[in-house]
Amino acid sequence: MGFYQVIRTQKIPADLDMVWDFISAPENLKKITPASMGFEITSGGNNQEMYEGMIISYRVRPILNINTTWVTEITHIKPQTYFIDEQRVGPYKMWHHEHQLEKIEGGVLMTDIVSYQPPFGWIGNLANTLIIRKKLQAIFDYRTLALEEIFGKWEKSD
């Protein structure tokens, strides 16, 4: 049974409060998710402020255009710093996603740490090698571009 991580960082040229308000609002998830995923929030009350214990349910098409129900719980929040969502029902055996924000000169450094286990033992491990990891990378690539469209592209030299 494999355990995997995807870690992505992005520098965003915006105020910390603006970035936090955007990424911590469930209704904004669709704006940063590829349309091909068929992402729809199915739980109510998603235009309210995020809180620990919040359950959010979605309908997504992660692979082969098959609709899947995905339910996550917001398990930890430190405003303007991080929040964690964990899968309760969905396509993975285990999913833990930490969204971190750090104020830096000229904007915000956003770090995502996704820890996951595919289902189905060795078959899931093979699927991760062939499909899942690439799909996750593509989703984060899309999200990077979507956030650049919303907040602007990082232009500072590093």
Score class of each variant (00 low, 15 high):
residue 86 E to M: 11
residue 22 F to L: 02
residue 145 L to V: 12
residue 58 Y to R: 03
residue 47 N to R: 03
residue 111 T to C: 04
residue 107 G to R: 10
residue 145 L to H: 12
residue 114 V to L: 04
residue 74 I to Y: 07
residue 83 F to T: 01
residue 130 L to H: 09
residue 155 E to S: 15
residue 30 K to C: 07
residue 45 G to R: 01
residue 39 F to R: 04
residue 27 E to T: 11
residue 70 W to R: 01
residue 92 Y to T: 06
residue 42 T to S: 05
residue 112 D to H: 09
residue 26 P to D: 05
residue 98 E to L: 14
residue 52 E to G: 06
residue 134 K to I: 09
residue 50 M to T: 07
residue 152 G to Q: 07
residue 65 N to D: 08
residue 26 P to F: 00
residue 125 N to V: 07
residue 79 P to R: 08
residue 148 E to P: 10
residue 25 A to L: 08
residue 112 D to Y: 11
residue 92 Y to L: 07
residue 105 E to R: 09
residue 54 M to P: 00
residue 136 L to N: 05
residue 61 R to P: 02
residue 105 E to N: 14
residue 130 L to Q: 11
residue 128 N to F: 13
residue 140 F to D: 00
residue 10 Q to F: 12
residue 80 Q to W: 01
residue 113 I to A: 02
residue 21 D to L: 04
residue 13 P to W: 13
residue 87 Q to P: 04
residue 54 M to G: 00
residue 143 R to Q: 04
residue 50 M to W: 01
residue 82 Y to L: 13
residue 106 G to A: 11
residue 79 P to T: 09
residue 58 Y to L: 07
residue 70 W to M: 02
residue 118 P to H: 08
residue 42 T to V: 14
residue 54 M to Q: 06
residue 65 N to Y: 14
residue 69 T to V: 12
residue 129 T to A: 15
residue 152 G to M: 09
residue 71 V to S: 08
residue 54 M to Y: 13
residue 14 A to Y: 00
residue 85 D to T: 05
residue 153 K to R: 15
residue 50 M to Y: 02
residue 96 H to V: 08
residue 143 R to D: 00
residue 128 N to Q: 03
residue 134 K to Q: 14
residue 33 T to F: 02
residue 107 G to L: 09
residue 124 G to C: 14
residue 75 T to D: 06
residue 35 A to C: 04
residue 145 L to D: 11
residue 93 K to P: 02
residue 103 K to Q: 06
residue 125 N to P: 04
residue 87 Q to E: 04
residue 29 L to G: 10
residue 145 L to Q: 14
residue 143 R to V: 02
residue 74 I to M: 12
residue 157 S to G: 10
residue 157 S to V: 15
residue 38 G to A: 09
residue 29 L to T: 09
residue 32 I to E: 03
residue 79 P to H: 13
residue 39 F to E: 02
residue 102 E to H: 14
residue 17 D to H: 01
residue 133 R to S: 14
residue 72 T to Q: 05
residue 121 G to K: 03
residue 152 G to N: 06
residue 99 H to L: 07
residue 115 S to A: 12
residue 75 T to C: 04
residue 90 G to I: 05
residue 98 E to M: 15
residue 107 G to D: 02
residue 4 Y to G: 02
residue 73 E to M: 09
residue 31 K to M: 06
residue 99 H to P: 13
residue 92 Y to C: 06
residue 141 D to E: 11
residue 114 V to N: 05
residue 42 T to Y: 13
residue 23 I to C: 00
residue 124 G to A: 14
residue 144 T to W: 07
residue 87 Q to M: 08
residue 136 L to G: 04
residue 109 L to S: 05
residue 110 M to W: 05
residue 34 P to C: 10
residue 91 P to G: 14
residue 144 T to M: 06
residue 109 L to I: 07
residue 36 S to R: 15
residue 94 M to T: 11
residue 19 V to H: 00
residue 117 Q to A: 14
residue 131 I to R: 03
residue 4 Y to S: 04
residue 111 T to S: 05
residue 120 F to M: 15
residue 128 N to E: 04
residue 50 M to C: 06
residue 76 H to K: 15
residue 153 K to I: 15
residue 81 T to K: 15
residue 28 N to H: 12
residue 64 L to W: 14
residue 44 G to C: 06
residue 24 S to L: 07
residue 14 A to G: 09
residue 104 I to Y: 05
residue 71 V to C: 08
residue 122 W to M: 08
residue 17 D to M: 02
residue 39 F to A: 05
residue 140 F to W: 01
residue 144 T to Q: 10
residue 30 K to S: 11
residue 62 P to V: 03
residue 105 E to A: 13
residue 16 L to N: 00
residue 119 P to D: 06
residue 94 M to F: 15
